[in-house]
Design a protein around this nucleic acid. Structure first.
Lengths: 234, 234, 234, 234
DNA sequence: TATGAATGAGAGTTCATTCAT
DNA sequence: GATGAATGAACTCTCATTCAT
């Protein structure tokens, strides 16, 4: 016989709070439970509400899943945005995106699984805000490559989309392994390896351009620092 | 004891034939239907049998899925084995594996979806014959890379597993796009692009090997200085 | 996600009421239907709910059966407890337990069948609350015998467990006959017969002890009554 | 996937032989498998035939079960018939029947389970040859009691049917315990105990027969008085 | 607004029995 | 006579969703 819950306390909370509670509960469940084992009633229980309440705030189960995933993704993008903008240098930029992604996966493999195995397979996934976010996020890599091409650091015939697919494809392969194997997953070395491989593949046959570019920037920085030093002294 | 009903119309086929019918029907359903919408009853109907018959030949639904997938995979491996053995040259070998995979996916996207989204996520997938086959198949790439390294064609510090993950990762990203987008999917150009990218990334540096390494360290220093400069200014 | 159909007509009852309805329905079905012909769908229909509702309150079919049987048993024990405590004399005590059991069976042969033929055969029956109840209930007989032995009314070499098995074994044989034969089943005479047989078998070869004991009690009561009569007069 | 048997050798056997094979296989299965876990296909396989063949010789599954049980029973009766006829003395006769039954159960608990839990519960069990055999077999006890009564060894007011029910009832209770508990089950001591208990209960009172009756009435009066005394006090 | 009892469609699976070969 | 592939009717159980209270 099922556990009958003791008569629950009706508490009227502001909607934002309720929504937050539900999403937190859902996220916890996804993180703990394996594939496809999340059940509305369990999420409700953990959030301290009943099933019906969830349906006041979310159109259906899938909507809840989407929103949880979106929030996670948004969080991840917001976290990295500031630093990402400030990065200089193609290698660093590539590395940062890749490393940051791996780190997020390591922290939240359950959510990753949710997205990879449950949300992405849905037939209308491309019409989803989650898809848009993901597209934007992974698009950063394309941007980096494109910029590198413009600046002559990368081969002019490189294909930014392919680079993105190779990077995130490789990440996914390793993630999948991590999810199943329960093997450890080291963002640091892995990010460096992937970045190196891509970077090397993107460099022009001989790469004097890059060296020059780096030297140029080095000079510029030096100049700025000197100026700064002068100002501070003054 | 069960009640029997009068109607009946049995057509008797040799088991191999029935099994083939069922597997064909299942394969068709997988190809047509979206994610998770394949149902035993539908497969049975299409195969011209009742549900119970399927259970004569397959232990359960999952067993049927596995076998269909295995057969497809085996077919794919057998087809390519002869030619694969005969190939000369790293680029050619890489390209052949990649191209052949893409071709198979283009022909049978439904089965690909089956494997990627339904069979692979299963918790015990690693103990599966399908996994073993897949591992062997993708391992070809590692073999090629390793051989290239031995022959001095590729950088001695390359990581064969990473190359495999990048190649099949990229393939998967495109496949996923193909599955949803219903966009076309051109094995020819795609295979060439992926191969080029990997191949280039694997070649030893034209200039002394440490050039890149030096450059990278220089780059890192620059970055630090730039950051410092930014912070100091602010 | 599931498709919903429009029709619906919900009647909302307090859980206790629903549970009671379901258990009543189940009990009716068990009483009417023969061996193993009770089906969840039928119980649901009779209780005026759909099958799924039953699973809100009972973990599975077996759980429902167990609970119905337990309730019946508990009822039976509660009913008899008060009187049982008050009984004096070995013969009376034996007779009461036996008679009461036969009466309960006569009233509810269907539930008896449920317990004997379906619940008891289960492999883990011994870990069941029903088993514990049954054990306690039939244990009353052992207690009576043991007490009789201590008081010297019964042979010192009697085996209480065997007495229990003979009593309830005989009851079961007759019950079985009743269940199939649809023959009548008269608790009164039967209880007397069984009790006599056991009682006789338990007496010491010659039984002066008992006579003495009874005489002693008779004297004691007489004395008390005399005293009482005196008090009342005063 | 199920094991497909290698193309079986069609061998034409005399019907008696086939029947014997099937019954032997069935008996083995019943002995090994737990409650309700015997499946026609398994019996067929063990007998070296296919399901269909069984239906040539047995009307249905139940018919097979019945015949196996009957054969076992018949065997048991035949085995004991000779000795049973020759026995002298009531105690010896009672003991022999009880002991022999316990021995048979100890040897074949699986078949006992089959009869107790599956065949006997069937609604039309009383119309069965198995029932008739069983009735005849257990009737031996009645005969012994009746004869003892005629010879004046047993009380003239004994009830032979009740003695039978107590004996076989007790046996069944112990059997049930044996089947579940996997506890050992010792026919020797147990038979002696049961026989003693019955025998003692059947002997005429050493003292005049009405002694017990008088005692009992005295006991009842005492009880009434005690109760009265208690109530009056309260 | 929150509740949570009730819904209901359907999924996978089992197995005694039949009958074309 | 023997085969064993095929049947098909049940059965238990799940769970997203609804809506009377």
């Amino acid at each position: 016989m099922q556990q009958r819950s003791p008569r629950r306390q009706v508490s009227r909370l502001p909607p934002e709070r309720r929504i937050a509670d539900i999403m937190t509960a859902a996220r916890e469940i996804f993180t703990e439970k394996g594939y496809t084992e999340h059940v509305i009633s369990e999420i409700a229980e953990r959030a301290g509400v009943v099933e019906g309440t969830i349906y006041r705030f979310f159109a259906n189960k899938n909507d809840l899943l989407q929103q949880v995933a979106e929030a996670w993704f948004q969080e991840m993008m917001d976290q990295s945005a500031a630093h990402y903008e400030a990065i200089r240098g193609e290698w660093n930029a590539l590395h940062f995106v890749i490393f940051h992604t791996l780190e997020a996966i390591r922290r939240d493999p359950g959510l990753t699984r949710l997205i990879l195995y449950e949300l992405r397979p849905e037939p209308d996934h491309r019409d989803t805000r989650l898809y848009a976010l993901h597209y934007e996020y992974t698009g950063r890599l394309c941007g980096i490559v494109r910029e590198g091409m413009e600046r002559g650091v990368f081969r002019p015939d490189a294909d930014p989309d392919l680079v993105r697919d190779m990077a995130f494809g490789a990440i996914e392969m390793r993630t999948w392994s991590y999810l199943h194997h329960k093997s450890s997953f080291e963002p640091g070395p892995l990010a460096r390896e992937i970045t190196d491989m891509l970077y090397t593949g993107l460099l022009p046959a001989a790469a004097p351009a890059q060296r020059d570019e780096t030297l140029r920037r080095l000079e510029a920085v030096t100049l700025r620092l000197e100026t700064l030093a002068g100002e501070t002294q003054a």
